[in-house]
């Protein structure tokens, strides 16, 4: 039963990810994020893009659990918050410059996620979603009572800690570039997973978990790996973000609003696609920022944001990119 000679139809598929146009579109977007504010030393644009990058990181990692594996993680903010805490706590200790502290946060959080993941992922659907909320609340409760981390009052970061990075002005730029790097890694991670065997297994789980198991997909292992792998970069991002804010407290770090927004963004953009969460995050963040400072809308910006969400959910349930794919199938090859 040797496999037959592969037909031309298969050869038509790109040899490697480097040959796929979307790979280069992502690279272009990253370059834009780096170049645009740097050219004009435009600090305001940088602040705005930084928030967009954070949302993109959260949404594209979340997309792997929601859009591929079909598990809606309501409490995904716990990775961001716990990573933030670990980094803020470690930074300033000997041997822990910012990059190391943030990385350590990422490693610890994804290790914990692997352990917790095996347990939490025994549940499905709504039970899983509730359990993820429970994980977030549990971690928040722990931190609130953990005095080495400031308990409910939180931790403050001394401005001296910005000195190794060249003072606050330079540090804010460095942190921005680091976050853009994490954003790039997030996009490439979700892309790489999607075209890999691992991603195929996750997608199968998302379609029909039991059938996938019968087909040989090691569902328990894959789900836990996905949960853990997509905790890593958000944890690092949390570390960088809270370092920049110079202050972290449990009610902010574990605020479920963030993960709910991330879910909304994934839906808005188009779950299961790579471009979807990124585009959704970018527009959502820009819109919110604009509404906040606009003279006309700032008083009811929450209403506008909510209305927009409703419209998208009612009329574009596959999200922006998903709907575009359905309308123009050839678009799939370029914008994935």
């Amino acid at each position: 039963m040797a496999t037959q000679q592969v037909s031309t139809r298969i050869d038509a598929l790109p040899r490697t990810i480097l040959h796929r146009p979307f790979f280069w579109i992502i690279a272009l977007a990253i370059a834009a994020f780096v170049v645009a504010p740097t050219i004009g030393n435009d600090v305001q644009l940088r602040e705005s893009l930084l928030l967009a990058a954070v949302y993109i990181i959260l949404a594209s990692n979340l997309n792997v659990m929601i859009g591929y594996a079909g598990y809606v993680n309501f409490g995904s903010i716990v990775f961001f918050g716990l990573g933030g805490y670990l980094c803020v706590w470690l930074v300033g200790r000997p041997g822990f410059p910012l990059a190391v502290a943030a990385l350590a946060g990422g490693v610890v959080v994804s290790a914990l996620a692997l352990v917790f993941g095996f347990g939490v992922l025994r549940l499905r659907g709504a039970y899983f979603a509730l359990a993820t909320i429970g994980v977030n609340e549990g971690v928040q409760a722990f931190v609130m009572n953990f005095s080495p981390w400031g308990g409910a009052a939180g931790m403050y970061l001394s401005t001296e800690l910005f000195a190794p990075l060249g003072g606050p002005r330079q540090a804010l730029w460095t942190i921005y570039y680091l976050l853009v790097a994490v954003m790039g890694l997030s996009l490439y991670l979700s892309y790489g997973i999607k075209v890999s065997k691992f991603g195929l297994g996750l997608l199968a789980i998302g379609q029909n978990e039991d059938a996938a198991a019968v087909l040989g997909v090691p569902t328990r292992l894959y789900k836990a790996l996905a949960y853990s792998a997509t905790a890593f970069l958000p944890a690092i991002a949390g570390g960088l973000y809270y370092f920049k804010s110079a202050f972290i407290q449990p009610s902010d770090a574990f605020d479920l609003t963030f993960s709910t927004e991330a879910i909304a963004i994934v839906m808005l953009g188009g779950q299961g696609t790579i471009a979807g969460p990124a585009i959704g995050a970018f527009f959502y963040e820009e819109l919110r920022g604009w509404l906040l400072t606009s003279d006309t809308f700032s008083h009811f910006q929450l209403v506008v944001a909510g209305a927009l969400l409703l419209i998208i959910v009612l009329f574009l349930p596959r999200g922006l990119i998903g709907t575009a794919h359905a309308r123009w199938p050839d678009l799939r090859r370029i914008i994935e």
Partner: peptide
């Protein structure tokens, strides 16, 4: 039990990838 949103080829690929 088809994997509905996936193509015919992708369905079979899952079988091939994770089979014996």
């Amino acid at each position: 039990q088809p994997l509905e949103a996936m193509t015919v080829l992708e369905n079979c690929t899952v079988g091939a990838c994770f089979g014996s």
